[in-house]
């Protein structure tokens, strides 16, 4: 037994696809692992970009900003100055008189909706097993997201305190 383990060939992971180090001696095993991330002309178009990596990165960057934007929003709306008691049309009008709070809410709307819809995309991909079910759920969720983002944006930009 000891003799067998002594002959084990250790190769760096970049040579994994050569089959070296597996020690089977069978030439058919020489290419058991594809070289990672090798892209050829036969690679399907949808996997030629780094979409999933960019989505992963977006979740972290937007997450950090959303911690500040949403916890600030909760602090102002629910915690300080009587909490929910003070909220009414006049309170909203007072806040949206300032471009700062308009920008705050606009950024919060876009980042939260994109962060949330990408999270839902992950959840749907995980649990909906049928291709058609996944497609329908994601289409429905995407349509609801686009509608909500556009509606919210329109409301912020066209708000009229003298309505």
């Amino acid at each position: 037994m000891a003799a067998d383990t002594n002959e084990t060939l250790v190769v760096p992971s970049v040579h994994a696809h050569t089959g070296q180090g597996l020690g089977t001696g069978n030439p058919a095993d020489a290419f058991v692992v594809e070289p990672p991330r090798a892209r050829t002309k036969k690679t399907p178009r949808r996997t030629r970009t780094n979409f999933e990596m960019l989505a992963w990165l977006f979740m972290r960057l937007s997450g950090v900003l959303l911690v500040v934007l949403i916890l600030g929003h909760l602090l102002i709306m629910l915690v300080l100055d009587g909490g929910v008691s003070k909220i009414n049309f006049a309170f909203v009008a007072g806040r949206w008189a300032s471009p700062f709070w308009q920008g705050w809410d606009l950024l919060m709307l876009w980042l939260a909706m994109l962060h949330g819809s990408n999270g839902m995309r992950t959840v749907i991909n995980d649990y909906a097993e049928k291709d058609s079910t996944r497609l329908w759920l994601k289409t429905l969720m995407g349509a609801a997201t686009v509608f909500t983002v556009l509606l919210g944006t329109l409301v912020i930009f066209t708000f009229d305190p003298n309505i």
């Binding site: 009414n88 049309f89 006049a90 909203v92 009008a93 709307l109 939260a112 909706m113 949330g116 819809s117 999270g119 839902m120 959840v123 609801a144 909500t148 509606l151 919210g152 329109l154 409301v155 066209t158 708000f159 009229d160 309505i163």
Partner: peptide
Amino acid sequence: GVLIFFFLFAHVLDTALVRVSP
């Protein structure tokens, strides 16, 4: 995350009522 996302839909819709009437 899922709970917050569903609340967010409702919350944008209720806030949109500021565009309807006070």
